[in-house]
Design a protein around this nucleic acid. Structure first.
Lengths: 152, 152
DNA sequence: CTCGGAAATTTGAACTCTCAAGCAAAGATA
DNA sequence: TATCTTTGCTTGAGAGTTCAAATTTCCGAG
């Protein structure tokens, strides 16, 4: 009673897989090469840069940057070593930690952004028509809203 | 002269990113949990299982399984330790190596497949209408055919 | 035949990610 | 106030990925 994929579904699935992997690899490679950081770190810096005070609680930051808490914790540790982020204790909750984007971190992000955006355009947007882009948006929303939370 | 993303493009980009990451995570988690292997290993086993003689040259296998040669080499080493794949020298090219799927490897794949397919359906197909699926296919093809090879 | 470059593959080190534990502080309950 | 549970975050170990540097073999030009 397994709902196997037929040939056409298989083809589409593999097409999808190859595509998303391609985009991811290009993104990661560009950032690593030109800015010396993986895409996940870039997302963390972006999230911080958009937060009020360029700072955020670790848990909130994890959600914003689409990261697990453990991953974020490790990543922030590395970013702290580079002087791009620093940690500060949270005033109203002594368990909490706040990650703050430093000026150096902001500068690193600003330096990395143009090359990254260009890669995003070349890897995705430039290949699509406005109509395709619109449908892609709908597709992503549909996939995400389906079974967002699984029982653990 | 950076071609920045406007607000709408930003939103779509992040939607896309979150979606592909979600699908990937679900895939990886399901396989790791239920079959004890990451998705990349699964793809290698699938590629081998579909090859004549259930065997393939390393380089061909790397292409088929969307892997770098280095990654494949490491992966096959691990798969060999589990007895799921073995290496054989290549007859007509002494540099070459052939990866062969063992019976145990085939059995492991067969055991993993149903759960994986179900996850694929739940994570992607079930959320989409036939029209969306068709467009998704076109989108992926468009993205992949655009700038397939970059100058290195 | 010989030399030099290209191709096939592996290896090692550095790095990131995941998972399972492990603390410490906060909240709830009695 | 004395637990008990939950929340926030970190830590360590194990595993996979990447990049650059070998290694071995093949191929073509002299």
């Amino acid at each position: 009673m397994t709902r196997w994929l037929d040939d056409e579904e298989q083809r589409i699935w593999r097409n999808f897989l190859a595509t998303t992997q391609l985009v991811n690899e290009r993104l990661d490679r560009q950032l690593q090469r030109d800015a010396g950081m993986p895409h996940t770190y870039y997302m963390i810096l972006v999230a911080l840069s958009e937060a009020p005070g360029r700072s955020m609680r670790m848990t909130d930051l994890a959600h914003r940057a689409q990261s697990s808490q453990s991953r974020l914790s490790h990543a922030v540790a590395r970013l702290e070593e580079r002087g791009w982020v620093r940690r500060a204790p949270c005033a109203d909750d002594r368990r909490g930690n706040i990650a703050v984007l430093t000026d150096d971190g902001f500068a690193a992000l600003a330096a990395a952004a143009p090359g990254h955006v260009e890669e995003v355009r070349q890897s995705l947007f430039d290949a699509l028509t406005p109509a395709q882009l619109h449908t892609l948006d709908e597709i992503c929303t549909a996939v995400r809203s389906k079974t967002v939370g699984g029982s653990s």
